[in-house]
């Protein structure tokens, strides 16, 4: 029982990071109808900037801010100078270009920084608290959990409580109608890319201290899990990303704890297959997406 409580708690913390990354995929899908396969590679570029800032200033917090800013800048650059040039009649060209971008970015990082993993210190202890003799979340897990919940809450507020969020939702649902209504759709798409890349960068930054360290492929597994979550929840559904992220995080944690880490990816893919068989659009998918 103690073990289950511990695995559930750590699964929740990890699941929220996955949910954050999945949310970033949902944001970009809603804004531009692209499954951005380059999301992890772009985020890793931003986290390398954060790594450099942290190394120079000895401050994790300045690194965190740098990751957000660098993520937004990378998102802006990729959208304005690459994706905008790609024909958008179907999602396929954009996806292919994104896959190409993964190769370029990962090769570039590899050439610049080498293949080694660079350890990043967590700003809080990773030793779990014990409650009634049962080890649960570590201070760092708690920090991750609070940051993730804060970002999810902030995004919900942005999209549901501000005029900018309303414009972003409208332009994602029906770009042509939105243009007729005075919404500057290209600007909304750029903002979507910036926001999405910043959130993804934050997710990778939060994960790196608990993994082997930072290298060009640090975001790859997170991307696979988050992509699974986004498909599970429905690419259009922020709620689906949140719930799906927690489910997958807990699943990974339980399978790792009871059956071994090697089986965790298989469990995630089995879950993905099951959901695709039962509800191909995703559990939280809504029928209406771009019907306006």
């Amino acid at each position: 029982m103690d073990r289950i409580a511990f695995l559930l708690a750590t699964g929740l913390a990890r699941g929220l990071v996955i949910a954050l990354f999945a949310l970033s995929l949902v944001i970009i899908w809603r804004a531009a109808r692209i499954v951005n396969f380059a999301q992890a590679a772009m985020a890793v570029v931003a986290v390398f900037v954060a790594f450099a800032v942290t190394a120079l200033t000895d401050s994790f917090w300045l690194g965190l801010v740098a990751a957000l800013v660098a993520g937004a800048v990378v998102g802006y650059a990729v959208e304005r100078w690459l994706i905008r040039l790609v024909p958008a009649r179907t999602p396929l060209p954009g996806m292919i270009v994104a896959i190409g971008l993964v190769m370029v970015l990962q090769a570039g990082i590899g050439i610049a920084f080498g293949p080694q993993h660079r350890p990043m210190a967590a700003p809080f202890s990773e030793q779990p608290f014990t409650v009634g003799g049962v080890p649960v979340l570590s201070p760092y897990d708690l920090f991750v959990l609070l940051v993730a919940l804060g970002v999810v809450g902030g995004l919900a507020l942005l999209f549901n409580g501000t005029t900018l969020g309303l414009q972003m939702r409208a332009s994602a649902m029906a770009p042509e109608v939105s243009r007729l209504l005075g919404v500057r759709v290209p600007r909304m798409v750029t903002l979507g890319w910036m926001l999405s890349a910043a959130v993804a960068s934050l997710a990778v930054l939060l994960l790196v201290p608990t993994e082997l360290g930072l290298n060009a492929h640090s975001g790859d597994v997170l991307f696979v899990h988050a992509f699974t979550v986004a498909v599970l929840g429905g690419l259009d559904s922020p709620v689906g990303a949140l719930v799906g992220g927690i489910v997958v995080g807990v699943l990974i944690s339980l399978v790792t704890g009871f059956l071994g880490a090697g089986l965790a990816p298989i469990a995630v893919l089995a879950l993905l297959t099951l959901v695709l068989l039962v509800r191909p659009g995703g559990i939280f998918a809504v029928k209406e997406a771009r019907t306006a």
Partner: peptide
């Protein structure tokens, strides 16, 4: 302009639909 096919944002509320063209204010 109104559109022949209405062009409404189906999942948004009535108020949100009407707010979209006013959201730049």
């Amino acid at each position: 302009r109104t559109l022949q096919g209405l062009g409404l944002f189906e999942s948004l509320s009535v108020l949100e639909n009407v707010l979209v063209p006013l959201s730049g204010r």
